[in-house]
Amino acid sequence: MSTAVTPGKRTSRRDFETIAGWIGDGAHVLDLGCGDGSLLRHLRRVRRASGYGIEIDDNKVLASLKNGINVLQADLERGLSGFEDDSFDYVILSLTLQAVRHTERIVRDMLRVGREAIVTFPNFGYWRHRLHVMLGRVPVSRELPYQWYDTPNVHVLTIDDFEIFCAGHGMRVRQRVVLDEAGDEVKLLPNLLGALAVYRFDKWSA
């Protein structure tokens, strides 16, 4: 599987290219919390992916529609009961994991509905965030751009936290890419030097 992302055509979000590199051509994808639909649009363009985005916010639903993707307005917190088992190749939760309340249920549903799941999240263990906390402030960064009083994020987690979560919830990590703030891959001390984590995983039983 080649990572045929056109150089110079950088997407606004750096996790997109990693995800596009992982999924197969023509993959059928469900994107949870699809925002303005730019990830699905990207995957459709570079991977001929099909599928749907789920979004609750009226303005983002409209933006997704304008971006030409299939968007279904729904509240993720109410689960994915409308979708059959194994109906997608990949279920993606991009920069949304930290903002959902029923995390365990959603991850379980992702692995029920999709053959594989992909999540991306800002790493709270990133050294700048640690520094913020050491200096007595809640971190605010490119990945965590909110103030404590207006953040949609209800969970903070680190890369190490997520790996423990995977091990405890029957999730087998297939691939992991950790990016720094510049969008470059971090190999050394990812939980300290990585700002954004991108995981691909499936069920242990699979």
């Binding site: 009226d58 639903v61 109906s87």
Partner: peptide, 21 residues
């Protein structure tokens, strides 16, 4: 409408769905 959308999704048809407040 969810019933309609479900049938469309299961056929992998292009569908968008909005629930207007």
């Amino acid at each position: 409408s969810h019933e309609l959308v479900k049938a469309m999704v299961e056929n992998r048809l292009n569908v968008s769905y909005a629930e207007i407040e």
